[in-house]
Amino acid sequence: MNSTYSALPRASFFNRNKRRLHKYGIIIAFFILCLAVTVIGEVQVTNGAWSSNYFLSQDNILIVFRQISINGILAIGMTFVIITAGVDLSVGSVLALAGIVAARFATTNSNMAIGDTANAILIPTLVALGIGLVCGVINGTILARYRLQPFIVTMGMLSAARGLSLLTTDGNPVSQLNDDFRWLGNGYILGIPVPVVLFAVLLVLAWIVLNKTTFGRYVYAVGGNQKSARTSGINVLKIKVLVYTLCGAMAGIAGLILTARTGSAQTSAGTAYELDAIAAVVIGGTSMVGGIGTLVGTLFGVLIIGVMNNGLDLLGVQSYYQQIIKGALIVIAVMLDPSRKQQRD
């Protein structure tokens, strides 16, 4: 009898720690990854001597944050979409289309230029944002109004946007970009890379929208149970359109930054970027069945992918292994999804 009662506190303690581990597991995993890369770098022997670790240097940290900024911006929009139990496979192609068209308003190449390059920041920014918004509205309207699967609709947009990117320039890249425009990808604000600043600002604004507004509560409600949300008076169609519009806008901004950073707009830009965005969101704890997810988790998902890629590069590991590890992380994250068990039950 006494042994039975004594077992109860231990079970309760385990359950409390299990919930805490699930809540903070992504943060713990990130710091473990950083520690592992640091330790391996320190003990790696080069020419018979201990190698100096470049991973934790200020320069490399800024490189990591600059590298993750584009995927981070895409992942912000993808988080909203996946919380509503959707997915957007078109963000990589929309990114390319927005970058190509925006670059034509910022190039000094007379054969490719559209308009006056004197407005090499404002006009391209508005163009890229506008293209992203339009593509997002089309995705959201079609899948919500006709109740089609997001996978099918956004896959169609993936193909259409990629085709428009090729058609816009006959498959040719747009180069010779204005220096003012390139500042968006390579400039600094108070010593911090501009892409990192933009990512941080967008992340904070998105967090406020998702956690402090009625729209954010409706996003979770639609993802949790569409029928109940509709019964409660929530305009499910409107919420879905707005969510995909937001995701398209993020893709447009990401395309703008990527083009400015690389110095040219390539028709092949953004290939498979949607997979990295989905991976970051899922690794960050957002449930693919909807209703569960946080932008803080997405941030750490993006950081894990960025640190993993950077660390493996510094350690001389081939990029092929990065894809394998990334795929394994996605599968493990989905397997650990608590809502998966609830859905199965």
Results as ranks from 00 to 15, higher is better:
Trp207Tyr: 15
Gly77Trp: 09
Ile253Thr: 04
Gly224Gln: 04
Leu62Arg: 02
Asn172Cys: 01
Leu314Ala: 12
Ala85Val: 06
Leu275Cys: 04
Met308Thr: 08
Ala272Asp: 13
Gly132Lys: 07
Ile324Gln: 09
Ala254Cys: 01
Ser228Glu: 10
Thr262Ser: 11
Ala11Met: 13
Leu202Val: 12
Phe199Ala: 07
Ser232His: 05
Leu158Asp: 07
Gly263His: 05
Gly72Gln: 13
Thr117Asn: 14
Gln266Ala: 09
Leu35Glu: 03
Met1Cys: 09
Gly252Val: 00
Gly136Val: 02
Ile131Gly: 11
Phe181His: 03
Ala229Thr: 00
Asn109Met: 10
Thr262Val: 15
Thr169Ser: 12
Gly156Trp: 05
Ser57His: 02
Ile40Trp: 01
Val43Glu: 08
Gly224Leu: 03
Gly284Asn: 10
Asn139Cys: 15
Met157His: 02
Thr38Arg: 01
Ser3Leu: 15
Lys326His: 09
Pro124Lys: 01
Gly25Lys: 01
Leu21Glu: 06
Asp337Asn: 08
Gly25Arg: 00
Lys18Met: 14
Gly293Lys: 02
Phe31His: 02
Val87His: 02
Val302Cys: 06
Ile208Lys: 06
Thr271Met: 06
Ile82Val: 15
Phe13Leu: 15
Gln342Gly: 11
Asp170Gln: 13
Leu143Arg: 02
Leu184Thr: 08
Leu167Ala: 14
Gly132Trp: 07
Gly191Met: 13
Gly216Leu: 06
Asn310Val: 11
Phe80Ile: 03
Ile76Lys: 03
Ser175Ile: 03
Asp345Leu: 12
Asp88Pro: 08
Leu158Lys: 05
Arg16Val: 12
Ala103Ser: 13
Ala251Cys: 02
Val201Leu: 15
Gly216Asn: 04
Ala113Cys: 10
Lys341Gln: 11
Ser52Glu: 11
Gly255Arg: 00
Ala49Gln: 10
Gly301Ser: 06
